[in-house]
Write a protein that binds this DNA or RNA. Sequence first.
DNA 1: TATTAGCACTCAGAGGCATAGAGTGCTAAT
DNA 2: ATTAGCACTCTATGCCTCTGAGTGCTAATA
Lengths: 364, 364
Amino acid sequence: MKLSERKKKILTAVVEEHIRTAEPVSSKAIQKAADLDCSSATIRNELSELGKMGYLEQPHTSAGRVPTPLGYRTYVNELMVRQKLSIEETERLNRDLDEKLNVLEPMVSDIGQFASSVVNYPILTLEAQPPCTISRFDLIYLSAHSFIIVLLLSNSQVKTKLVKLPVSVGQEMITKLSSVFNANFTDIDESEITPLKISSMERAVGDTMGILSVVASYAIEVLSEEKHMKACVSGANKLLSQPEYQDPEKARELISFLSENACGDLLPQQQMAPGENIKVLIGPENVAKELKDSSVILASYDAGQNMKGLIGVVGPTRMDYSGITAKLRLIASELSRRLGGPASLPSGLDNKLILKGDIDGQKT
Amino acid sequence: MKLSERKKKILTAVVEEHIRTAEPVSSKAIQKAADLDCSSATIRNELSELGKMGYLEQPHTSAGRVPTPLGYRTYVNELMVRQKLSIEETERLNRDLDEKLNVLEPMVSDIGQFASSVVNYPILTLEAQPPCTISRFDLIYLSAHSFIIVLLLSNSQVKTKLVKLPVSVGQEMITKLSSVFNANFTDIDESEITPLKISSMERAVGDTMGILSVVASYAIEVLSEEKHMKACVSGANKLLSQPEYQDPEKARELISFLSENACGDLLPQQQMAPGENIKVLIGPENVAKELKDSSVILASYDAGQNMKGLIGVVGPTRMDYSGITAKLRLIASELSRRLGGPASLPSGLDNKLILKGDIDGQKT
DNA sequence: TATTAGCACTCAGAGGCATAGAGTGCTAAT
DNA sequence: ATTAGCACTCTATGCCTCTGAGTGCTAATA
């Protein structure tokens, strides 16, 4: 069933007024907002029909209208004008992003924090992870009881681990192991590092102390960790200033859902339609029941080499879809531009300093 | 002015009942709670006096009593029985901590998360940072245009950076630089890496391309970053389930204060009295005005080599000081035991696998 | 036929008021 | 010094009314 032009105009007005005010929208308010040449009575008739058609609903009989998920969906798909950011806004956003992206090889969590302060909603991020192999092994001999493993990954990350040994080992052995690894374990998938292969190599090198297998299991660990996409939530507390989350219990539920589960479970399942790079999930369209009353706007960015990352906004169904989509699109496209492959290194860095290793935990 | 035994008993009962119920405490409730051999009228007289003395106050004339900050302070300093955790509780806590501490070289944020789930309040952590130097340099030659810097720090962390060069460089030069750095830049403070020293070394080695200075500035960067203590907040949303933070605006204020400022500003200023390792800040005793209605319990832990870290709980002034103090003390002492110097490595690791490098951002 | 003015109707929310009950403070008795 | 008893205070609750925003419907109008 197609909507008449006027119905479209009215639906648009309802959605946008409601987004602005967070209140049910009355026929008079619409008359003011949309410049329609008709009386509030006419609008009321239309509203009533839009109600029957499922686009709008009323909190109670004598209240104004509020969009249903279908109403929002129609607005997002057909009615909403893709808001253009003003030149100043774009420039400002770009400048701020510059700071975040140029200063450091961007940490997703930092980008999330930034984006959250821009849109004033919580941000979900899912870090792009390329298919990844080890390009090079280095074992640095420190002492008879310790050495460092340095792995250069195909995605230009460097991973290290300090290994302490209960037995002593000579420099030559470490050097020998190093070249054995480089000869046999580079550019292969995690699954190809088999116990069989390891033990046959141990015999070949004459390693009876399990040093080789320590290195190999670290390699496996690193590779499998790289497969796992890293997700994170920033600015969850932003929700608390929205009127729909005034009930602290509701807010708490959603916030803990976001900080506990969403990251891992929610994002990775989201597939973008090919060719699309933005996706809006309205209310019940979300799988997670905790998000049934909220909307999520996701944008994918391209970090080169087939790596796709996601950045998303969570908010009430009454969200500024148009404005936020515009901002998110800009942020995602800047991310793509600046992360898209080694060809486009952040300009401030003179192509020199690219990666820095940081030590953190050790999972066994 | 000393409190009579009975007044002490009554004050204790008021504090503990209020902590339990979050409501003003009536004379009858006290009669039940503390096993006092007197009538509620007598208790009312005492309450009235305690009120005049500044330990208690009434929300309104015909309501029960609520402790003032002085009341809480007295409770914490003199009245509270240092709660002992039950054997089961201790064991459970220890087992759970085991998992967190044995599995990985503990990340403060993980410990914070864990502690937050134990006490059900937000947790602040301030990572112990030792005075730190670089123990060893390694430069790994990759190609004419790239190499990896690997720094082994005196605190056993490993830091790496992948460097790409706009000019070409030979393997020998990298090797030479490596030994020069080891000879001149190990075990010294950041401040001793001067431009003068760098340029004189550049001449000595014959480095005209500024490679040496790239490595040196990375060294400086790493050292200065290590000096900076890392703070973090976990589980801030836990506040929302507490009755005193039902007003979402108040909650929001405190939560954003915690996640934005507290980390950096609040914790580092806190000095423990020598010999003490736990500290309770009640309501207005907090410097930050955002915390005037909240309390903070801080415990310091000792990570060996003069490194002190902090772990703290934030909650309403009505907090289970006794129980939380006990839990926090246990957590902090376990942290100390397990991080206290290289002598006490987590047992599950067989002394083998200790550190893992992770790549993240690059600051210039 | 589509629009509109007008009016009756509905309902949430605010304000006023009485009531209940929890708790105190005081007094007089013990 | 303690306590029973009672008057008093004050909040919280429920109930009522009133108001006003907003609708839905009807009948008049273009």
